[in-house]
């Protein structure tokens, strides 16, 4: 499993908006400059995050994006799950052999559960607050 550009940019977009959120929506051009990311690409990611219920789009001049919920209500695991399609190692394939099945049931599936547990309760607010990641290192 590799996290795609979409997953990485999407999270940086959310973190940026969470850190700079006032009452006014934030334009993607501003985020693009601040994060040194392509604005075109951010537009695609923002659309996905809006459809997924993490962002709200405000049209018109002075328009841009706002977080749909408070950062402490946005679960990182859910964001990644949306951006990546899924963040699991387990893949079911047609005609898998006995060894593949054992690996899937006894390694990849419990591994996915472990990842889910590791992310349980981790919110966007935790990521934007330094307190969380100092004890990670």
């Amino acid at each position: 499993m590799k996290i795609s550009t979409r997953g990485r940019y999407g999270l940086r977009l959310l973190v940026d908006i969470a850190e700079h959120a006032e009452d006014d929506p934030i334009a993607l051009s501003v985020v693009a400059k601040r994060q040194k990311l392509s604005e075109k690409y951010l537009q695609q990611v923002a659309l996905l995050l809006t459809r997924g219920g993490f962002l709200t789009s405000v049209k018109g001049s002075g328009g841009g994006y706002l977080l749909k919920e408070k950062p402490d209500q946005i679960m990182i695991y859910d964001v990644l799950d949306l951006l990546e399609g899924s963040i699991t190692f387990e893949e079911e394939s047609d005609g898998e052999n006995a060894i593949e099945e054992v690996l899937r049931l006894h390694f990849y599936r419990p591994l996915d559960e472990q990842v889910k547990r590791a992310f349980a309760g981790l919110t966007l607010a935790d990521v934007t607050h330094a307190a969380w990641f100092t004890y990670m290192i």
């Binding site: 999270l11 990182i76 472990q114 990842v115 547990r117 590791a118 990521v127 990641f133 290192i137």
Partner: peptide, 13 residues
């Protein structure tokens, strides 16, 4: 800050 998310994932795996 997102780097810490990848560290968490890496450690879990």
């Amino acid at each position: 800050k997102t780097h810490q998310i990848w560290s968490l994932l890496q450690t879990a795996v």
